[in-house]
Design a protein around this nucleic acid. Structure first.
Lengths: 102, 102
DNA sequence: ATCCGTCTTGACAATGTGTGTCAAATATGA
DNA sequence: TCATATTTGACACACATTGTCAAGACGGAT
């Protein structure tokens, strides 16, 4: 199973782009991007969106990968991870049906 | 649907305990506990465990409530929340079957 | 109304976490 | 060896979380 970093690196290399080029476009130091691709640092939402643009990802799909990575990282070591996900699903459904505002 | 704060407050009041008593046991300022019960601040994992002890919750169940709250809060405003959860589930399953260490 | 115990509120300090910057070190290939 | 690309580590800075404290609000009892 690919990590977010691997997904990004594979796509970048397939497109023949350099760290320097992508990081310049995303307006970050290339050291940061290097670390992100090796999962030494975690990207943030804003960066994911920029990377989706330059690397021609579907934005929502890359965001979903990013968010799910974060969640999996948070709860992977809980013995009750399954229960947590089920509860979260219920809560989200509840929030969506009951919230008036955004 | 009850929030973590409401769950804690209800249980505390049913047990007839004061903020002062519970917060002393958990070794935090009672102002913090007051805010947590009104969802003005978020508890952390360590506190959840202490609260489960003194308030006689099942520890794993309270932790599950706590984690799912956090997740729901993180991704409730994503349009692709369902996809995120499904991906997270897959990633967690993968991590559990493939990790040797804890 | 006053007193007393409980809870709430807001301002602030301390601490922790994430993020950005930089330069030196390490590949990799011509 | 030289040039280019990537990696690594140290550091500073900004932002978020957490803890501390005292004053204020509330409710019940007298």
């Amino acid at each position: 199973m690919e990590t977010i970093g691997q997904i990004i690196r594979n796509k970048r290399e397939n497109l023949g782009l350099l760290l320097r080029q992508v990081s310049a476009y995303a307006d970050i130091d290339q050291a940061i991007l290097s670390k992100i691709e090796r999962n030494e640092r975690k990207p943030n939402r804003e960066l994911i969106i920029k990377l989706a643009e330059i690397l021609k990802f579907d934005k929502d799909e890359l965001l979903a990968q990013y968010m799910s990575d974060k969640i999996a990282y948070d709860i992977a070591d809980e013995d009750c991870a399954d229960r947590v996900l089920k509860l979260a699903e219920k809560k989200i459904k509840y929030l969506k049906t009951h919230s008036i505002n955004s």
